[in-house]
Structures are given as structure tokens and as C-alpha cells.
Amino acid sequence: MRILSWLLIAALGLGLAACSKFQTYNGPEVTRVLVYKGERKIYLLHHDRVLKHYDMDLGFAPNGHKAKRGDGRTPEGDYAIDRRNPNSEFYLSIGISYPNKEDIARAKAAGEDPGGDIFIHGNPRRPGGRKPDWTAGCISVTNAEMREIYAMVRNGTPISIYP
């Protein structure tokens, strides 16, 4: 009876570990992330070699560079991955260093707040699924894809976002 109890506990522990949203990655370093808004594609690169690519959704106003808080646009330009949120409202997320100095200066000249909190993230916790280009300016992928991206991309990785 005691052996059966230990086997059940071990099986439960392995099952819970398999369901974890945190993966490990031991492959080549991701040296750059490229985002092509028009194609709705993200590419994870090791130098010039594509390691992985994903389809994505953008902000609810996908055309053009983010200019101010609340405009629903995804920024364009060169940034870096600068933070991680394992407890995101959107499954897992990694932060993009928007706004940069140019973004701040442009918004200030227009008398606007440039906004912030731009992330690559998974799906929302709320029920009902997702529709195309539903975020407030972030980049969204499936939760399974976000597990891979979260494991592969380190803080400090450059990210370029193109129209």
C-alpha cells in the first residue's frame, strides 16, 4: 500500500511539472528579435539564422508608429527586451523598452504622453478567446508560443519592430 501511495505522489508530481508554464531552453542564444507588423510575424534569430518564427497579433490600430498613450498602436523602431512578468494578466510576458529617448521627445513635442508597458505576451486570462489585433499596442502570440519565447529570449536582447 505504501508503494502505491509513493507511485501516485510521484505521478502527480510529474504531471504537475509537465503542466508548468516555465520551459527551459538549451539551444543557440537568441541574439535578436525581428518583428514585421505588416506580415504579422516574429522571428527569433541567432545572428543571421532564424531559430523560430511565429504569427502574432498587434494593437487594435496596427498601422503606424505608437505616438501616445491609448492610441492602440504597436511601436516601430529599435528597442531591447528589458523585463519579464511571470504573473502577467496575459499568461507570460516580456517587456520591450518603449519608449526610447526619440519616442519621448516626439510625444513631448506633440504635448502627449508616449505611453509604455509594451510587451510580447500570451492570451488574456478572461474567457472568450481573442480576435485579430486586439491588444492595446502589445504583441500577442499563443500561450504555447509564449512559453517558448519566454524561455528563449533573455533580457537585453535587441528587438527591431518594422512596419
Rank of each mutant, 00 (worst) to 15 (best):
A136L: 14
G15L: 09
M56L: 15
H47V: 14
L16C: 12
G128I: 04
N100Y: 06
V50R: 13
P62L: 07
H65W: 08
L45R: 09
K52I: 00
T24G: 08
Y162C: 03
A151M: 08
P158I: 11
S5W: 14
K101R: 13
N100F: 04
G72V: 07
F22N: 03
A107C: 09
D133A: 05
Y162V: 04
D113V: 01
P86K: 12
E29S: 12
Y98A: 10
I161S: 09
W6F: 13
I94R: 03
N26C: 10
A18E: 01
N63D: 15
I139R: 03
D57E: 12
T31R: 02
R147C: 02
R126F: 11
S5M: 13
A107R: 08
D78E: 14
G27Y: 04
E148I: 00
F60H: 14
L58P: 02
L34S: 05
G27W: 05
G137M: 08
A105M: 11
G111K: 06
K37M: 07
D78H: 14
Y150K: 05
M146V: 10
W134N: 10
E89K: 14
I120Q: 00
D113C: 07
E39T: 06
R106E: 14
A107P: 06
H47L: 11
L58T: 10
G122F: 01
I159W: 02
S140E: 11
P158R: 06
K66D: 02
L7T: 06
I94Y: 00
N155S: 10
Q23A: 08
H46L: 05
G64S: 05
R2D: 11
G38F: 02
K41V: 12
S88M: 09
G137D: 04
H121K: 05
M56F: 02
Y79H: 09
G77I: 01
I149W: 00
R147E: 12
K108T: 15
P124W: 07
E112Q: 15
A67I: 13
A110S: 11
R106K: 14
P163I: 05
D113A: 07
G72C: 01
T135D: 00
Y36W: 12
R126Y: 13
L44G: 05
A109S: 13
G70F: 11
R126T: 13
G27T: 09
R130E: 13
K21E: 04
N63C: 03
V33D: 02
V33R: 01
F60M: 11
K37H: 06
A80E: 10
F90D: 12
L16W: 08
W134F: 14
I96W: 11
A10Q: 04
V153R: 07
L12E: 09
N143L: 07
M56P: 05
P62H: 01
K37W: 03
P114H: 03
F90Q: 03
A10N: 01
W6V: 11
I96H: 12
M146Q: 01
A144T: 11
M1F: 12
F119L: 13
L51A: 08
Y25S: 03
M146I: 10
Y98M: 08
